[in-house]
Write a protein that binds this DNA or RNA. Sequence first.
DNA 1: GCGCGGTGTGGGAGCGGTCACACCGTCAGT
DNA 2: ACTGACGGTGTGACCGCTCCCACACCGCGC
Lengths: 340, 340
Amino acid sequence: MTAPTPRQRRATIFDVAAEAGVSRGTVSRVLNGAPYVSPSAREAIETAIAKVGYVRNRAARNLATQSSGAIAFIVHEPDAVFVDDPNIGAILLGANAALSAADYQLVSLLIDTDRDSQRVTEYLAGGSVDGAIIVSAREGDPISRSIADLGMPCVMVGRPDNQLQLPWVGIDNRGAAQQITERLLSTGRRRIGMIAAGLDRDSGRDRLAGFRAALGDRYDDALVVRTGLYTYASGVDGMAELLRIAPDIDGVFAASDAIGAGALETLRGAGRSVPGDIGLVGFDDSAWARRAQPALSTVRQPAGGLGAQAAELVLEQVRSGTAPGAGTLLPTDIIWRASA
Amino acid sequence: MTAPTPRQRRATIFDVAAEAGVSRGTVSRVLNGAPYVSPSAREAIETAIAKVGYVRNRAARNLATQSSGAIAFIVHEPDAVFVDDPNIGAILLGANAALSAADYQLVSLLIDTDRDSQRVTEYLAGGSVDGAIIVSAREGDPISRSIADLGMPCVMVGRPDNQLQLPWVGIDNRGAAQQITERLLSTGRRRIGMIAAGLDRDSGRDRLAGFRAALGDRYDDALVVRTGLYTYASGVDGMAELLRIAPDIDGVFAASDAIGAGALETLRGAGRSVPGDIGLVGFDDSAWARRAQPALSTVRQPAGGLGAQAAELVLEQVRSGTAPGAGTLLPTDIIWRASA
DNA sequence: GCGCGGTGTGGGAGCGGTCACACCGTCAGT
DNA sequence: ACTGACGGTGTGACCGCTCCCACACCGCGC
């Protein structure tokens, strides 16, 4: 039998004040590093804090200051993508590092069901966080809308729905897609197709647009297979369809590495060699690309940097209280590996 | 020039009360679904809430009720693992679903640097959450210790450091490892090695123990390679070493699927066929296993179920205020695929 | 001796809720 | 007609902290 958990009352600022023989005002000053505190009082308070084991009550502080020292990281993705997509983890880590350096706490909230969406909205409105970072927002995302309505400092990762004028950070998907397609062309490929995905958001549409721009006159819409998500499964199916449409295809741009890995699987099954028969490139520079056989040429996007940049922009808004600039693009690199 | 963000004062319960022509007490009753409110008052309050756009201030409520309606999900892992390990995502989703159903908010906190550790501890002590779920705690983890000291409801995923008597949920790593090794034996393999990892925590040690138990007299410690983390890289290196130690090896138990995938890469490079020359099994049933060539036989662990179960146990403690039972083991399945 | 600016300190008034209690009708039971 | 139970409501105290004003004290120059 364990004891019935006494759960004794936690020490408050009053206890500290009493212990140190000063008033709560002085304790509060010490806690907040304010000036005009005598060395003796400061010392007495510090030992009192240690003695009674005092920790600031965050709720009380939030209520009094009308702020929280926390920033929300909102992930709105179906389960499968969250688990599959390494970018989200990297963005999260980048944001965490930046916030940590500024002594802000990151709290990540994930939205799966509609019910979650409802609850997260309330959580945000309730003042538990001072700002928000939203990843992978899609068209007409209710969360983005309510954050905009709340007037809460916020940055989106990925260029959003442009109706709400929210600031964002992202990469130049179009330019990067164009570049990698051009390099594919420069290796002598002539019949080049694309497995497109995520067309319900900017990244997907821009990658397709870049592909199209690179090909110019040679662009053939029949060689573009449009799939749903950036997943392995999309790659498997998409490649199968592409082979059926154009058996003589010799180059493929997969809209993500996961798709590329799936495509590779289909090509292997079909007995086509990569890069011998077909050149294949992906996008993201995720683990998928590095561990594929052969390793995929791809576009590296600075996922950690995106998270860090988003965090900085949110903090800037929180601190200054001003409305933000429009958007920021971070540079990408092309990584040339064995697959093309 | 955008307007200087008026940031108008948010409506409070007073505003609602005034608008509806009742007192704050009655509004509070409606908000909390308490009985003894006349239909007319209820209706007036509901329209008033809608009209003034009222949302409960969470900080105030937390302060008054001394609780927060939120549960922390603490991930304490080096970056690389967080991004690589699909289990964590799955556990997170499982926990989120369970908490969501109970109308609790999950906030996930990740600990990367020591500074994070410090800040998270304060965050927890500050009363922003009512309980915590800790994943992948290691020996002597400072966070687990401070949570234990706080007397905060808490459940660990994976059997922890047994000095602190915290409740946990986990799987029977030992039993599962034993089973899959036995099945490997039953396919006629005779010289069986293991690439062990994570020996600084229970899961790693137990998997090794199960392996040993399955082999009994035939166990040969020379055929166990001890690596660090459950990563692809560990698999690549571990397998190379195993081949060097015992070129005639014909069966390998990889302590995780990521390790198995890495091992596969080395075997492919060495010209050994799987399952022809060597039978290989993994652990986790993650995407690594399903997408390896050939797909890995492995142990499926109910990651989502672990998260859900952990959430339930935390909530139970929060609600009852009682100290918890010891630990819970969830069942595992063996998935037989092409690799052995 | 007096006014004055700069330090250091105490304490009241919120922040926005919840909760317990007091109170007020209404209506059934005696 | 009186009592009491009960549904419905208002109100004050309080949760723990910050902010700010008032005040005490100090040495200083006039």
